[in-house]
Design a binder for these strands. Sequence first.
DNA 1: GTCTATATGATGATAGAC
DNA 2: GTCTATCATCATATAGAC
Lengths: 208, 208
Amino acid sequence: MMNKSRGRGRPPGRTETREQILAVARRRFLTEGYDRVTMRSIAAEAGVDAALISYHFGSKHGLFGAAMELPANPPQILAAVLPGPLEGLPERVVRAVLTVWDDPDRGGALRAFARAALVDDDVARLFREMAEREMIGRIAERLGGADASRRAAVAASQIAGLIFLRYVLCVEPLASMPTDELVAREVPALRAALAGAGTRPRDRRPRP
Amino acid sequence: MMNKSRGRGRPPGRTETREQILAVARRRFLTEGYDRVTMRSIAAEAGVDAALISYHFGSKHGLFGAAMELPANPPQILAAVLPGPLEGLPERVVRAVLTVWDDPDRGGALRAFARAALVDDDVARLFREMAEREMIGRIAERLGGADASRRAAVAASQIAGLIFLRYVLCVEPLASMPTDELVAREVPALRAALAGAGTRPRDRRPRP
DNA sequence: GTCTATATGATGATAGAC
DNA sequence: GTCTATCATCATATAGAC
């Protein structure tokens, strides 16, 4: 029974332990942050020895850098819903966000990444630049107009707040609110934000 | 010269060290989180010995609990603007939030507290309960109606997103947007959120 | 490649002198 | 009340046997 070179997809010179360590490290770093997770615990959970981490990645920082290679890609989610009629953009965005974050796998990765962005300053800077260029910027150029980036920024903050309270902090009744109801409640507010400051405060009509 | 009891402002029986430790601990815990700050570093910055912390507060957790007694009080900010005509509530809330967070002192404390809430699970739970009971709950009972808490929650998420992107992550152009323009852009969206899901994107009416 | 053993240092907490 | 000295524990990292 296969003592070595099982099958033929993995030559003996190949290291499987490395990938195993990386998988565990990625999840642990994201969910708990850099400081709290120890090399020992990662090694234990990966079923290997702690010294292997230093052997493969040099140091804990080396492991962190190797494990943090794109856990999830928010800009690509946005790019999928940006095309199409401008009228339905708010609903498409909200539904896309909820779909991704409600998914256990992708949502978990994003949730963890969001937490990490607030602990580590480098991750925070990365996150800020991505938000400005890849999200607010994209929405703005889709909207067009003089103050498009400002309207897009307000709308983005609304989405960010929804994510923050519902998925990161799990505040009720947001956390347990059904998707359709949440869409119905967010879309009018998003429309108002995207319409800009010129709109009248009282009158609200979902103009078709 | 002056080996002890300098001047006479501090009687020998009184403990000033305790307050000094508390002041340093509060700031450090908020800015760096519970794990990262050590008792030794707090003691060094406070100009006292590390053993004094254990003497005065029993343990590091004891110090944390003592230092976390209201660094800033969001519910009281909300309570100041809740009374008054319902029509102007969105603007009053936005202006109050911006005023507090733009203030260097109070804003800095809140910013630090928000960061701490995302790192430490205990602070996060505390923050969540406060948000549900003292903020969403208060707004909901001010609004009245069947789904008041759900409308209040959506509105609260909008404010949270604004705070998050403008003050914590400092995302442009939100971070440098003038107060009045921000108010003008946020208020219509807040109104829409508080109005509820009456303006549905499709055929969704959760409420009969 | 993988493990055992260990070097080196920092942490929280405590006992006891003054 | 405050400090010195110390303990037990845990961390990262490395040297060397197999």
